[in-house]
Simulated scan of single mutants.
Amino acid sequence: MIPLNAPALPATLTLEALARRLDPAALPLVEVHSLDMGYYLVRLHHAGGESRLVDGNGETRRFTGTQWISRALAPLGLTHGILTWAEVTDEMVGLPPSAPMDRDARLAHGTRIAFRTQG
């Protein structure tokens, strides 16, 4: 189990609300979830559970590349995250459906990434 020391956050947050609520001494764990079609979602893991980054209308904020996530989160002090993905190809090749992966397994098997954008 990954220790989550960051204070609890609401279930959904805009980037602006996240900037106001972050505690630099105890940052949440950032999950960058890759979806089919080149979209990425951001989940924040903390002591209170999980939060989703949303736009001003309350819809899940979709990024079209990890560099956009980096440019949004790095200035807030969030320097790294874990890249996870939904496996859509299993059903395409005829494999039986698998049970959804729980949060701890998803984060444990994700790829660690740094939020650093140049240029």
Score class of each variant (00 low, 15 high):
Y40P: 02
L44C: 06
I69C: 01
I82R: 14
N5R: 08
R43C: 04
M92F: 15
E31N: 15
L13Q: 04
R62E: 07
E59Q: 14
I69D: 05
M92W: 15
R62C: 07
H80A: 10
E31I: 15
E87H: 11
V93I: 15
W68R: 14
H109Q: 09
A86Y: 01
A72Q: 12
L95Y: 14
H45Q: 07
S98K: 15
R61T: 05
P10V: 07
M37G: 01
T84H: 01
P96C: 14
T79I: 13
S34D: 06
A47Q: 06
L53W: 07
A105E: 13
Y40E: 13
F63R: 08
G38K: 03
A17F: 01
Y39M: 13
H80V: 06
A6H: 02
M101A: 12
T64L: 05
P7H: 02
A6C: 05
D23F: 06
F63C: 06
R52S: 14
H33P: 00
G81W: 11
T12W: 04
G65A: 03
P100R: 12
L83Q: 08
H109R: 08
T60F: 09
G110H: 00
R61N: 04
P96H: 14
A74Q: 04
R112L: 05
L22R: 02
V32I: 14
S70V: 01
R106Y: 04
A72T: 08
I82A: 14
A74W: 01
L22P: 00
D36K: 10
L35R: 01
L15P: 02
V88F: 07
D102A: 10
E31A: 15
L78R: 01
G81L: 11
P28R: 03
G110Q: 04
H109P: 00
S98Y: 12
N5Q: 09
T79M: 13
A17I: 05
E16Q: 14
N5F: 08
A26Y: 06
A114V: 10
T12M: 13
L18F: 13
L73I: 11
R52A: 13
G119H: 08
R71Q: 02
A99I: 11
E91C: 13
A105T: 12
G77Y: 00
D23S: 11
L13F: 04
H45D: 12
G77E: 03
E50P: 00
N5M: 07
L22G: 03
R20K: 13
